[in-house]
Structures are given as C-alpha cells and as structure tokens.
C-alpha cells in the first residue's frame, strides 16, 4: 500500500468524511499536513491526542483517528494544559482558529507560552470567523472588510508569532496552505520541539473572507499567498525595503528553556525521594 493510503487508513476516520468545510477552504490542506507531520515525527498513535477549540478548523479533530478532544470556544489550550500535566507522556496537538486562539482564547495562549508547556499549537489563520459567517478577528488585517466591519476594520492585527515569543514560547513557525510540504515539515519540527510551540498556518477562506474583500477564489487566494510570502532563509539576505508587505515563512524562532510539565514532575519526585 502506498504511504499516503496507509496514512489515510490509519490516521483518518474515513467514515466521518466528507468533511463540513466549504469548497476552496484551506482546512483540509492544513489537516493533511498535520497528519503527515505526525507520521514524520514517528509518535506512537496511542500517545497522540488532538485537542481543538470551536470553529471551522477545530472540526478537524473529529476526522482524525486518535484520542480527540473538541473543547469549548477559546479554551483548547486550557483543557490541553490539564491533560498534559496529568499525562506528560502524551503528545498533544492543539488545533485552533485565529479568533479562537487570539481573541477569546488569548489569555490561555499567552500563559501556555509563559509556562513553556510542551503543547504543539497549530493555528489555522484564515483572518476571519468563518463558521459564524465572516466577522473580523484579531488577525484580520487592518482595512479588510468583514460582516462586523463593513467599511473595513480599523483595528490593528496581532502578529501572532511575536506575541507568542514575547510571552515566552520557545518555538514559532509560519507556513502557508499554498506550500503544504513546508507546512508539514514545520509542524513535524514543532512536534519534536520540547516546550510550547506555535505554528501559524495561513489558510484561504474564499467564502467568508475572500469574496467580501474581492480576493478571488481559492486558486487566486493561494497564488497571492505564495507571491506575498518569503522564507526566512531567503529574507535574511534581503533589504528591509524589499521585505515590506512580505509574510515570513519558516521557523522564526527556536530556543531551549525548561519545559513546565517535566519540571513539575521532576520537582515532586525529588520531594518524594
């Protein structure tokens, strides 16, 4: 059996397909990259847990054949923190959307980063609340339109990876749905990283975001995504003027720091020794 068929059989709940996502949505691409990354990381299937919040991308959990936990809006990281502290040997991937993670879940995001707890956050950023029909999120670029910002949002957006790094995360990477292989490698590296890791996956939402902002269909949006991004390696030899309006992809930071669940269990074992 070809590798991809084997992966599909093992890691996807094929009986739960077709998925609920709209035509042209990038969630399937990101989910597939995640599945290949788990394979690449070579974890035991029974040790892998997928935790997700509420929103379009969080529905991915239901399609993945692991222990899967579909939580409440914004709270995926808080549920995951409890589970990881209870069972540090488990490998947790936490799928969130941009609104889920950075608005209602913002507090849990910065504190997961501060603790440097070994969770792999995968944030599918489509710049919009898709499931509720297109409201602006903290990651909607300033000026872009949404149902709740019909004249274009005046609010400035977060740079999610700068936020994560500032709060203490020790691994941050950005990938795009237009380059799924790179995205897969980034998630696999995040999975192997000990500490709180953040992978931001830019993903097109032609229905609730692209249409309203005249960005074309899925193909145009993916093309634009590719054209406007540049890898950190290439960017390192370019002037800042050349990098204006470019989105950096690749591993933006990776450093070592004590990991919280390990430190906690080490500390209580020492006390009890």
């Amino acid at each position: 059996m070809a590798v991809i068929e084997q992966l599909t059989q093992d890691f996807l709940r094929t009986k739960k397909l077709p998925h609920i996502w709209c035509p042209g949505c990038g969630n399937g691409i990101v989910t597939a990259a995640l599945v290949r990354a788990i394979e690449r990381a070579d974890f035991d299937q029974k040790d892998v847990v997928i935790v997700s919040g509420i929103g379009c991308s969080s529905r991915a959990a239901g399609y993945l054949n692991f222990n899967t936990l579909h939580t409440t809006h914004g709270r995926a990281l808080a549920f995951a923190t409890g589970l990881k502290m209870a069972r540090p040997e488990l490998k947790l991937f936490v799928i969130m959307g941009d609104g889920d993670c950075s608005a209602i879940g913002g507090n849990h995001f910065i504190h997961s980063a501060r603790r440097n707890i070994d969770l792999n956050a995968v944030i599918v950023n489509n710049h919009i609340y898709g499931m509720t029909g297109g409201q602006h999120s903290p990651l909607t670029p300033v000026g872009k339109k949404a149902t709740t910002a019909p004249r274009g949002t005046l609010e400035r957006e977060f740079d999610l990876l700068k936020l994560a790094r500032g709060a203490g995360a020790t691994f941050g990477a950005r990938g795009i749905a237009a380059q799924p292989r790179q995205l897969e490698q980034l998630i696999a590296r995040a999975a192997k990283h000990k500490g709180f890791s953040v992978v931001e996956a830019l993903s097109p939402c032609p229905i609730a975001y692209g249409r309203r902002n005249k960005l074309g269909g899925a193909v145009e949006m993916l093309r634009e995504m590719k054209d406007s991004s540049i890898s950190v390696e290439k960017a390192s030899s370019m002037d800042t003027s050349e990098l204006e309006d470019k989105t950096l992809t690749g591993v933006l930071f990776s450093e070592e720091a004590p990991e919280f669940s390990e430190e906690y269990h080490k500390s209580i074992n020492k006390e009890n020794a």
Partner: peptide, 19 residues
C-alpha cells in the same frame, strides 16, 4: 496548577480527568 483564570481552572480539571 494555578491557572490564568477561573475558566482555565475548570477546563484544566476536565482535561486532567480525561487523562
């Protein structure tokens, strides 16, 4: 674990119980 807020406290308890 002292959580960042009350909501997280409830969530973490559920997470641990599932563990």
């Amino acid at each position: 674990i002292q959580m960042e807020d009350e909501i997280a406290g409830m969530a973490a308890v559920i997470g641990a119980s599932i563990g």
